[in-house]
Computed example of a mutant assay.
Amino acid sequence: MTCICTPLLHRPEAAGEARRITKEVLARWRVAEEAADSVLLTVSELVTNAVEHAQPPLALGLSRDPGTRRVHIEVSDGGPAASQGAWAAGCAPEEHGRGLTIVGRLTAAHGHRRAPGHATHWADVNAAV
């Protein structure tokens, strides 16, 4: 299994940085374009959620299992923040809150693990290579 793990700065630009890193990794792994699009959107949603709703530190993990043809995504953070980020706090309720619904539709499976001071949100995307 091939695995990439990289820390991200806990700021709004982290989603763009995570997409850039992910796009490079998926190209090296020769993941098909449609699957790559699902992986990129999933990464973007999970990182954005971590920036808006969790504390630092923030890290992105990507792995690929050639046997199952899945890309495994993990976004780790410092656990729930005491208050929402500036973007979510400034939005009307109907303007946010759909990220995990999107992740659920794009992925074969997703979930989270929590420990004191730490949370990991993960997702598996079927990917033809």
Rank of each mutant, 00 (worst) to 15 (best):
M1K: 04
M1V: 12
M1E: 05
T2I: 08
T2G: 03
I4F: 13
T6R: 13
P7Y: 03
L8Q: 03
H10P: 11
H10I: 10
A14M: 05
A15S: 14
A15W: 01
A15N: 01
A15L: 06
G16S: 13
G16T: 10
E17V: 10
E17K: 01
E17M: 05
E17L: 03
A18K: 00
R19N: 03
R19D: 02
K23Q: 12
K23C: 09
K23R: 13
A27C: 04
A27D: 11
R28Y: 02
W29Q: 02
W29G: 00
E33K: 11
E33N: 07
A35K: 02
A35R: 00
A36Y: 00
S38K: 14
S38E: 14
V39Y: 04
L41H: 14
T42Y: 05
S44G: 14
S44W: 14
E45S: 10
E45Y: 09
L46R: 06
V47Q: 03
V47W: 02
T48P: 05
T48Y: 08
A50V: 06
V51I: 09
V51T: 01
H53D: 03
Q55D: 15
P56I: 08
P56Y: 02
P57L: 01
P57W: 01
P57V: 02
L58A: 06
A59V: 01
L60V: 04
G61A: 11
L62V: 03
S63E: 04
S63D: 04
R64F: 09
P66N: 08
P66G: 06
P66D: 10
T68R: 13
R69H: 15
R69E: 13
R70T: 11
R70A: 13
R70V: 10
I73R: 01
S76G: 10
S76A: 15
D77I: 01
G78V: 05
G78M: 10
G78H: 10
P80Y: 11
A81S: 15
A81C: 12
A81T: 11
A82C: 00
A82H: 00
A82S: 08
S83K: 11
G85V: 04
A86E: 14
A86D: 11
W87H: 15
A88R: 13
A88D: 12
G90W: 06
C91M: 11
C91A: 07
A92V: 06
A92D: 11
P93M: 04
E94M: 03
E95C: 15
R98H: 15
R98L: 15
R98W: 14
G99W: 12
G99A: 15
L100T: 08
T101V: 15
R105T: 08
R105L: 10
T107Y: 00
A108N: 04
A109S: 13
A109R: 13
A109T: 05
H110R: 07
G111A: 06
G111P: 07
H112N: 12
H112Q: 15
R114A: 15
A115G: 10
G117T: 08
G117S: 12
G117M: 08
H118M: 11
H118I: 03
H118E: 14
A119P: 00
H121D: 07
H121R: 11
A123F: 05
A123D: 05
V125S: 12
V125W: 02
A127D: 01
A127H: 02
A128C: 08
V129Y: 02
V129P: 04
V129S: 09
